[in-house]
Design a protein around this nucleic acid. Structure first.
Length: 287
DNA sequence: AGGATACCCTGACCGC
DNA sequence: TGCGGTCAGGGTATCC
């Protein structure tokens, strides 16, 4: 689920519940996810108040009034589920899902008033760390991240510098979190299609005009995806944000064999594998 | 140095 | 219905 737009959607969905909230206790149902939890995690978070939720790339940032910030990654299957008091124990259609998912409820935020926020992650590729807030960027997870794609840091000149001289395919370059941080497989495919740039193009071969188009495509696709996620936020408090915001708007991702949606293009969406991952593209209008 | 590959783990899905 | 194979939106270690 989570690339940058999904994490931003999670942040926006959680903010009304977590901003300013007192965490009465952090319940750990295991000692690790992808990595071991930091020492004394529960003690360092319990009885602390949350400041204002943030995000860096695909990481959710939860600053505490203790001067430390939780750095949370959803991996590939992570969810944050908001439960109101008593909701989890209710019977009915919802109950089945809750009990089935409860197996992978690894970390539970118990908030004042009985509300619970559950970090559920079947594949356990997620992570959770703590870092002093005044040295946040030194955290191992954040230290080598590249440009934040939303905001002013990503502009044609900056992207041109990042790509210059690289022979790696554009698909790999855009997936590299050290260059631009936050894009994943889906939005890389979508951005390259919108910019009409072939995923196999050596990164250093792009013309200035193509780089400009790519910057616009990246911004647009992320912004549109966040907007689509935002439209389902009202449901978020009851469920988990996995409602599938943007997939109906995919132009190429997971659409192998479909006609290319570019106006006037008669191409067919094709799939290829690059560094072990599926790339979806149109050979007619992406050059 | 930089790029490609193997791997961490579970669940969903497809064909037989 | 069960079973095996395949695939999945991420990131890191390791090899070349």
């Amino acid at each position: 689920m989570p690339e940058l737009p999904e994490v931003e959607t999670v942040r926006r969905g959680l903010a009304p519940h977590l901003d300013g909230a007192l965490i009465e206790a952090l319940v750990l149902n295991r000692a690790d996810l992808r990595f071991p939890f930091p020492p004394d995690l529960a003690r360092r978070v319990g009885a602390r108040r949350v400041l204002t939720l943030g995000r860096r790339a695909k990481y959710l940032l939860i600053p505490l009034d203790s001067g430390e910030t939780m750095i949370l990654h959803l991996g590939m299957s992570g969810r944050m589920i908001v439960e109101r008091d008593g909701e989890a124990g209710q019977t009915g259609a919802f109950h089945h899902d809750v009990t089935r998912l409860a197996q992978h409820d690894h970390v539970i935020f118990r908030l004042e008033g009985g509300k619970r926020i559950v970090f559920n992650d079947p594949r356990r590729f997620g992570s959770l760390d703590l870092q002093p807030s005044d040295r946040l960027e030194e955290a191992p997870a954040l230290a080598s991240l590249g440009l934040e794609p939303l905001g002013n840091a990503l502009h044609p000149g900056a992207l041109a510098t990042l790509l210059a001289g690289r022979r790696t395919p554009m698909k790999a370059a855009l997936l590299d979190q050290r260059l631009i941080a936050g894009l994943g497989n889906i939005y890389v495919c979508e951005a390259l299609h919108r910019a009409h740039v072939a995923p196999t193009r050596p990164a250093g071969s792009l013309k200035r005009r193509e780089i400009e188009a790519l910057v616009i495509a990246i911004r647009d696709v992320l912004a549109e995806a966040i907007d689509a996620g935002g439209s389902t936020l009202r449901d978020f408090r009851h469920e988990d944000g996995s409602l599938g915001y943007f997939q109906h708007a995919f132009r190429v991702y997971d659409r192998e064999g479909a006609p290319c949606p570019t106006p006037g293009c008669r191409g067919i969406v094709r799939r290829l594998v690059q560094s072990g991952r599926s790339t979806f593209h149109c050979v007619e209008c992406q050059r």
